[in-house]
Amino acid sequence: MPRELDPTINEKSFILDALNQKLRIDGRDLDVFRELELSFGDDYGLADVRLGKTRVLARVSAEVVKPFTDRPFEGIFTITTELGPMASPAFEPGRQTEQEVLLSRLIEKAIRRSNALDTESLCIVAGQKCWQIRADVHFLSHDGALVDASCIAVVAALQHFRRPDVSIEGEKVTIHTMTERVPVPLSILHVPICVTFSFYLDGEVCLVDATLQEEQLRQGDMTITLNKFGELCQIAKAGGLAINALILLRCAKIALVKAGEIAAIVQRRLEEDAAVRVRRDNLLESKADNERA
């Protein structure tokens, strides 16, 4: 099995010595994210997130299916992740590693189980037809913080996505094409953002958004997911270095600030993209509340 190369002893001591002096090798402060670049595709529901050299692509798609029998009033929302050799040669295709299971569980808990997407709004005919929303996450390049980047990608893609409009007359369900009727956005209840902390030097130093090298050297980690309203969606600190409770609480406060900042960037980019679309597709004409100046 190919393994990620461990940092050399020289690199290790250099990075840890620097961290001891509260310095990171890429010159960032300890609690600063790398520059977040977010772009959207031509189609609805494609988000491309770059966090430094980490790059994650999320694609949201929708199809009409039969709902689960035990939940006839709810649509279906699934998130699939697969770590392939494209992201890093250490990932083998087809085989689920522990890292991959943990990553998909984390994203699942952060986004799906926190009810970020209102699945009840996806119901078309109770017990017979509903929308299945599927988010596929592709990891294109791995330089640390995969959880944070993929969470941003999924929530951005969900907010960007538009599904075809549906009208119901009696038993007859019509799905209108994208050109026939203006497609409708999904009902997003809140925007969860993941922030992963890495702990070094017996918990004295905690970093956000660690690079791959920093991740390899960390003694422990914790992922906190919250939205800008200050609701925690998920915390996962599965073992690793034991940390003082006060430090963990301080991390939670930092995470709240970071979640607000990232959500604001995502929101701004969505608005910019919407403005471009309005100009390109002449969408002003298709709005009912158009002033038709």
Binding site: A238, A245, L248
Partner: peptide, 16 residues
């Protein structure tokens, strides 16, 4: 010192 901390459902940050 806390070595494991897990939360799986939504809760206000102040309650933590």
């Amino acid at each position: 010192k806390i070595s494991l901390l897990q939360l799986e459902t939504k809760v206000r940050l102040e309650r933590l």
